[in-house]
Amino acid sequence: MGKDSKSKDAGAKGKGKGKQAGGGSEENVSKGKGKSGKASDGLGTCTYVKARHILCEKQGKINEAYQKLQDGWLSNGDKVPPAEFAKVASEYSECPSGKKGGDLGWFPRGKMAGPFQDVAFATPIGATSAPFKSTHGYHIILSEGRKN
């Protein structure tokens, strides 16, 4: 599995913020390792992530999508169910994956570039990221799983 520095589909280059929503904090992206060599929080060492995302060209549109998630779940501290995230992605996402509920499937570290990869690998399983910017537009990510 060599690293592919070119982004595909939802990969992104550029600067952006990767803060988590729904009670997450930047402390959640700690990469401290225990005796097993794995990060104590499981975020820093995984090789693959399974994720859904919403991509919008305009910040106003991604904010609308995020507000819909916020009103339904995040403001109550709940996690957004994947099926509900998929409905919002189908409605708002401008990425071809939007037709599949934003499903990106499993992807390895190195496939997605820049802030997209950073946020995807830093968002805890079941959590939804806050909107962030890449060169492709504005994204929201729902982390569905991780594995080595």
Rank of each mutant, 00 (worst) to 15 (best):
I141A: 11
Q20C: 14
F107C: 06
A113L: 14
F107M: 07
A21M: 09
G2K: 07
T128M: 00
D118M: 00
N148E: 11
L43R: 07
L104K: 11
T123H: 08
S30L: 10
G145S: 07
T128Y: 03
A39Q: 03
A89Y: 04
E26S: 15
G16S: 05
H139I: 00
K38E: 15
F107I: 06
T45L: 01
E84P: 01
A86N: 10
C46S: 13
G32C: 00
K99H: 02
T45E: 14
Y92T: 05
G18C: 14
Q117Y: 03
Y66G: 02
G34S: 14
F132R: 02
I141V: 15
E91A: 14
G114S: 13
T128E: 00
G145H: 01
G126E: 11
A39H: 10
G42Q: 05
V119H: 02
G101Q: 01
A130P: 00
N76C: 07
E57Q: 14
Q67V: 04
F132P: 02
P82C: 07
P131H: 04
K147G: 09
G22S: 01
A122T: 08
Q117N: 12
P81C: 08
D41H: 12
K13Q: 14
G23M: 08
A86V: 08
V29D: 10
G44I: 05
S134H: 02
Y92H: 03
G22A: 09
F85S: 09
K87F: 04
G42T: 06
S93K: 01
K147R: 05
C56R: 06
G32F: 13
K8I: 12
G42W: 08
K87E: 14
G105N: 05
L142V: 08
G18S: 12
K61N: 12
M112P: 00
P124G: 02
K79E: 13
K31T: 11
E84H: 04
V119N: 06
F132V: 03
P131V: 03
D103W: 08
E64D: 15
N148P: 10
P96A: 05
L104T: 12
E27P: 03
G126R: 12
P81G: 06
D4A: 06
E144N: 04
